[in-house]
Amino acid sequence: MSDIQVARRQRRWHIAVFLLPALIVYTAIMIVPLAQTLNLSLFHNDAQNAVHFVGIENFRTLFVEPRWAAQFWNALRNNFVFFLIHMVVQNPIGIALAALLSIPRLPGRAFYRTAFFVPTMLSFVIVGFAWKLILSPIWGVTPSILGAVHLKWLFAPWLGKESSALITVALISVWQFVGIPMMLIYAALLGIPDEVIEAAEMDGVVGPSQFWKIKLPLILPTIGIVSVLTFVGNFNAFDLIYSAQGALAGPNFSTDILGTFLYRTFFGFQLQLGDHYMGATIATVMFFIILAGVCAYLFLIQKRMRRYQF
């Protein structure tokens, strides 16, 4: 009896040894700085560089004071547009490609799957710059491709025009990331039990109607996960816009999203000095937006979808 108890107590030490390295690194490098950043948003320095507790004053400045508010609401609005474009373009294309790939005994499936995922592997820097070159009127690749199908009149320097830059950047991001929803949904489609499909076939539900009536409802939980991943990724995006449009997210801030706004505020740009406290305030707002999105998913969407899981 006492032997077992001793053995048990010894085992408890192993648990700590196994857990501590991960917990220490994770807590020290991720959780503590995150908490510090959230905390910093409640402080500000005055002209003498003394730091004061200012409560929610920074948030008031960000939301209301004209110098900040105009940029903040612009970035937030652009970020929602960026997200919406991903939801209406990236995810349907991802679902469509996954549906096609999951057709049984499709020749060349491995080739297509590999090809579709190539852009996802590339860094934003490469993708941003490559597309900047491809869409550049100087090089003229895009006009000559459009010319080949008699659509040359469509061409405009899309990345350089205020009206189209945000949509163009979002579509470049869609091009890059469509591989992720495709893979996740493809995996979900493969996971549907054969019995379900066979039962549908017995009832004469085949082809496209089988997809809409049987498979799509069954993969809704995966579409939920894809949506929340898209949300988190988009509200945390920075690299692509920084590489394609620069820190000023031009032209005239038309591609500015929260990530680039945070970077400019934190580090300063041109003549404006960096402001750690306002930077922390923006990071805090981003934190709560992402948290709200994740909670909405967990409590509203995922709960209702449980019943579909096998």
Binding site: Y26, I29, I31, P33, L34, Q36, V232, L291
Partner: peptide, 17 residues
């Protein structure tokens, strides 16, 4: 928590540290 919340949001704290 760390799967969903991007580590980037703590950048200011990380840089200070």
């Amino acid at each position: 928590l760390g799967i969903m919340i991007p580590i980037r949001l703590g950048t200011i704290g990380i840089l200070q540290m």
